[in-house]
Amino acid sequence: MAMNILRSRALLTSPRLMTSAFLKSPYQANYPAMLNTLHTTHNNHTAGLLPSKHWNAERVLSIGLIGIIPAAFLIQNPALDYALAASLVLHGHWGMEQVFLDYVHGETMSKVANASLFAISALSFAGLCYFNYNDVGLTKAVMMLWSS
């Protein structure tokens, strides 16, 4: 009787228990359903760059600013004034997006905040371009303040 039970596969509750795959990993080989419940970060972005590419673009811009800011003041060139305006606004815009992500909660509020930010960033960039085109330009303005 006892030998009967010992020989029975039921003793092991499941034949799966005896497969080497089960012994190696209870999650991968035997339970494909679990693959659907991997705890990944919830994807918040709806449009634009992939988050990883966005992160890279932010770093490239940040490193670029280290060069653009001194170059714009040393070389004093209108093109660099536009580059400065564009990169400062984009850097500020991305930075503010990050701040809003941390401190503005709720779907509606986030949408309102981000839409407003986009509008203000665009208007500011337009304003700075206007200032570069019709007025003295960014770097010259700072130089004028310094020489006063």
Partner: peptide, 15 residues
């Protein structure tokens, strides 16, 4: 920088 851009495009006189 936003205030500079916005104000200089709205205000009537130059810098």
């Amino acid at each position: 920088i936003y205030a500079l851009g916005l104000s200089m495009s709205v205000l009537p006189h130059d810098f």
